[in-house]
Structure formats: structure tokens, C-alpha cells
Amino acid sequence: MAGLPKRIIKETERLVADPAPGITALPHEDNLRYFDVTIQGPDGSPFANGVFRAELFLPEEYPMAPPKVRFLTKIYHPNIDKLGRICLDILKDKWSPALQIRTVLLSIQALLSSPNPDDPLATDVAKHYKENEKDAQRVSREWTEKYASA
């Protein structure tokens, strides 16, 4: 574990010992900056009962720079594109070193509950959500069942 900043060790420790509800994050044994993440779809959202896999990487500058997070499970969400990239302010210009892996993952989970079609990454999905939210949510549910059922 040589060279790994204390902060990362402490965060990992806490993630393992005291995981946030519905979220797991496990570091790779050969690269402790690389985490396998699972996020449960929030109840009441079209993503409920789905388990979404994601990857999280802590860059060298962390915590001065944000972690890089990407969904690996296909998801029908206006702020998440085909490649799993996530449009979330704290992962970009609103990053602060006071944030942590845990808070970042909780924010992503919250994003699943409240999609924001006004700041889209996947424009077609956003359009769908804006024009016919009910139908879009149906597709989201279908995708969840198809790709994210545990």
C-alpha cells in the first residue's frame, strides 16, 4: 500500500466497514485507486430493484481533482450517456476536496431518483423524458429489468 495517501486508505476503510445503504465499492487488489461499484436503484424511481455496476477511479491529483466515475450497466437516464458517462456537477466544476468517494456515490444514487432533463448528456433520452415522461420512465424500467436485474 506504499505511496497511497492516508486519506484514500481511510476512505476505503470506511467504505468497507460502514457502507452507505445500497452502495458497495471495493478496490481492486492490484490497483487500490480503482474501485468496483454497485448502486441499487432508489425505491420509487424507474430504476428500483436494479443493481447498476459502475467503475470509479481516483486520479493522481485526488482529492484536489474529482474521481472519475462511469456506469458499466446500460441505463436509460437523461444524464447518463451510452458510454456510461455521468453528467453531475460535483464530478466536474463543482468538485471540492471536502467531498469523498462516499458522498460522490450517494450523489449519483440521488441522480437516479431525480433525473435532470434540462442538463442532458443523452439528448435523445432527455427529449423523451421531456416530451413523455411516463413513457420514458417505462423504457427506463424495461432497461432496468433487462440489464440491471441482479
Binding site: 495517501p5 492516508k6 486519506r7 481511510k10 476512505e11 482529492p63 476536496p97 471536502a98 469523498q100
Partner: peptide, 13 residues
């Protein structure tokens, strides 16, 4: 410290 998460009486990285 909110940045490095080390106690104040410890030292920064």
C-alpha cells in the same frame, strides 16, 4: 482537516 482527512494535530500529506 476537511481536505486530507488527517487530524489537525497530525500533519498534512
Amino acid at each position: 482537516c476537511g481536505i486530507c482527512r488527517v487530524p489537525y494535530e497530525g500533519c498534512c500529506p
